[in-house]
């Protein structure tokens, strides 16, 4: 680390920051994808229920009786919102990955220079 120039150190810090950002976006996306799958599954299960089967919505620790159509609408809206949020995150992710790919060769070349200096 001591052998890096201030500029290289700055590049390394930026690279690490971008890596952390990519990781955070990935985690956020995975959580949203899980929520989306759960919502889709709930919609599918609602569709399979017998006509007139009572349905409930969890509100904190209690369950409140609800109308099936209302629940279907609310889940469909939720699905749409999740789809949009995932697409937004994917776009952010693409930008960060592109930046990482641009930074990586420069950083690798700089680090290789130092490492070969050590081995020689």
């Amino acid at each position: 680390m001591e052998k890096l120039s201030p500029q290289q150190r700055h590049q390394l810090a930026q690279f690490q920051q971008a890596q952390q950002q990519a990781q955070a976006l990935l985690t956020q996306k995975q959580q949203l994808v899980m929520l989306l799958r759960e919502t889709e599954r709930a919609l599918e299960e609602l569709g399979k229920l017998q006509e007139g089967a009572p349905v409930y919505k969890s509100v904190g620790p209690i369950m409140v009786k609800a109308q099936r159509e209302e629940l279907e609408k609310s889940l469909s809206d939720q699905k749409e919102t999740l789809d949009l949020r995932i697409k937004t995150i994917e776009r952010q992710e693409e930008r960060v990955v592109k930046r990482l790919n641009e930074m990586r060769p420069k950083l690798e070349a700089a680090l290789k220079g130092i490492s070969s200096g050590e081995v020689a």
Binding site: Y56, L75, Q78
Partner: peptide, 8 residues
């Protein structure tokens, strides 16, 4: 059923 929805 998931997504905080339950059914009988």
């Amino acid at each position: 059923l998931g997504a905080e929805v339950a059914a009988q």
